[in-house]
Design a protein around this nucleic acid. Structure first.
Lengths: 196, 196
DNA sequence: TAATTCATTGAATTTATATTCAATATCATA
DNA sequence: TATGATATTGAATATAAATTCAATGAATTA
């Protein structure tokens, strides 16, 4: 890769980074190309040199987000509780160091709604189904008493919805993003764990 | 009140109802006046007969939402746990019967972000501080062992963020809004209760 | 019934924003 | 240094959505 290509890649990355933050904080429609340009300190015109359109930029971010918010499958764990504790611990940790991951989470979580999101993007999203996957793990774990009683899918839904909510509020209130003030991941795992 | 005034009030209410659902599902910017008009089965022009502008309509909804999502202060409770259990039980119940309240919750919860929201609206929002109020109740309750250990503000933040997340996901996935599939309010209260 | 007021529409206007484009500057390399 | 390629800008254009408005229809009241 030539020096110029690297430069180009860095510029693109800068734009994506700023856009991720803005899309997470304000949503797709409320984020104007002008906002992103200003955040990345460049002219609006230049944005179109790097990205074909606002939609394509968003699509690229979603594609990236799909990768980044989807570790669980790859994680290996001792027992099913570890699956959730390990993931949350990591997520909360990362959120302080690189708000990045938190923003991606917010963006991905919102895709469920938005009837206005183009089909190509919804498709990427549809392929990940955190709730479904986790429900299976919960169902299996319940047999060994790792989780509380209750419909596994509902438990999984409650758990991931809460995680989503916390990521969103953390995105909105940066003053909560310190070691001291961050929620403890164990509190959240207790949604599915109960006193099992 | 004359018959015509009543008629007018009903029309305004119809518009607000449809708008609440749309604003909750798609956000402010992505909800077009045309969308609301279509949902309320009237012309776009007529919308402006009833509401001065999209922003004023939104403001009115936020004002209404501030009232509806802010019961806790008025609730009386035996012990501090009741405060949260009672509120959540009611909220989840209502969400099935009248998605209304859920949508309002979503709208209110999102106001935290949106730097684009006009000042007048932010002001209404700023006056409610669920997290702050609840933190006090938690702090008081901890002394008597009603809640788990931990920073009261963080606990309150985690709790309300989770509620927010659940309301949002319920708004997005109506198939979860049945007695059987709804999360159990006790699961969520366990965030702050732990095994205390 | 006539006059008045309100409800409603669809088309015209304005405005905000995405997108295009021609011109210029900067960089890389022969 | 000259040439070509890429980066960058600001202004022009296109587009979509909010808002206004004149005209029409329906209800209400004198």
């Amino acid at each position: 890769m030539t020096a110029r290509d690297e430069q180009k890649e860095q510029r693109r990355q800068l734009i994506k980074d700023k856009a991720i933050e803005l899309f997470a904080k304000k949503g797709y429609a409320e984020t104007k190309i002008g906002d992103i340009a200003k955040a990345a300190d460049m002219s609006v015109g230049l944005m179109f040199h790097y990205f074909e359109s606002k939609e394509k930029l968003f699509e690229e971010i979603v594609r990236y987000g799909a990768m980044r918010t989807n570790y669980p499958r790859e994680m290996n764990f001792e027992n099913p509780l570890d699956y959730f504790e390990g993931f949350l611990k990591m997520l909360f940790q990362y959120s302080i160091e690189q708000p990045h991951i938190m923003y991606l989470f917010v963006i991905m979580g919102r895709l469920g709604f938005s009837e206005s999101v183009p089909q190509s993007i919804k498709k990427i999203f549809g392929e990940i189904n955190q709730v479904e996957q986790s429900a299976e793990i919960i169902a299996a774990g319940q047999k060994y008493g790792y989780f509380r009683e209750g419909d596994p899918y509902s438990l999984s839904f409650a758990f991931w919805s809460s995680v989503q909510g916390i990521m969103e509020q953390l995105a909105a209130f940066p003053e909560m993003r310190t070691k001291e003030k961050m929620p403890d991941y164990k509190w959240i795992v207790d949604i599915i764990r109960g006193n099992a």
